[in-house]
């Protein structure tokens, strides 16, 4: 998060669309500068999104191609991913590729061998209930598509 000459913080954001519902995501570039930069460099993205099978109330997308796959290491690592939060699992030894997670309810990033960590990169703006509902619906309806595009700064 940068500071403008007038003293206000500039919040980077992107536009997220899932199953016909859209919301703005405020990026946490102060917590995860390298990962957020890689995410922005990857845009626009239009990729399959499906429900997690180990991590609870969250969906994930494979982001193994593109700038995110070049991120080395975690930033501000967490295990719990709260509703509306986006997180990235960068490539790691024994875990090639990269994933983007979005939680719509209780979620913990887990693998078969237990809990692991991810980098939190941003959060849906308040009031994004329809997007959370669309994410939750993948548990019953199956795979969908997520679109991410730049939304500028404000």
């Amino acid at each position: 998060m940068a500071e403008r000459s007038d003293g206000e913080r500039r919040m980077k954001s992107i536009e997220l669309t899932v199953s016909g519902t859209s919301a703005r995501v405020v990026l946490w570039d102060d917590l995860a500068p390298k990962t957020v930069a890689a995410l922005l460099e990857s845009l626009p993205l239009e990729i399959p999104l499906q429900h997690c099978k180990w991590s609870g109330s969250a969906c994930f997308a494979d982001v193994s191609k593109g700038a995110i796959a070049g991120v080395s290491g975690l930033e501000s690592p967490v295990v719990s991913v709260y509703p509306g939060v986006l997180a990235v699992r960068p490539p790691a030894p024994g875990a090639p590729g990269a994933e983007l997670l979005i939680a719509y309810g209780d979620a913990e990033y887990r693998w078969p061998d237990g809990r692991r960590q991810v980098t939190p990169v941003g959060e849906l703006e308040p009031g994004a209930r329809t997007v959370l509902d669309a994410l939750a619906a993948t548990a019953a309806k199956g795979r969908t598509t997520i679109r991410l595009r730049a939304a500028g700064e404000r």
Binding site: H51, C52, K53, W54, S55, G56, S57, P112, A139, A140
Partner: peptide
């Protein structure tokens, strides 16, 4: 019933 995929338990 309707069978759905688990969310926490794997495959």
């Amino acid at each position: 019933e309707t069978l759905r995929h688990v969310r926490w338990g794997g495959e």
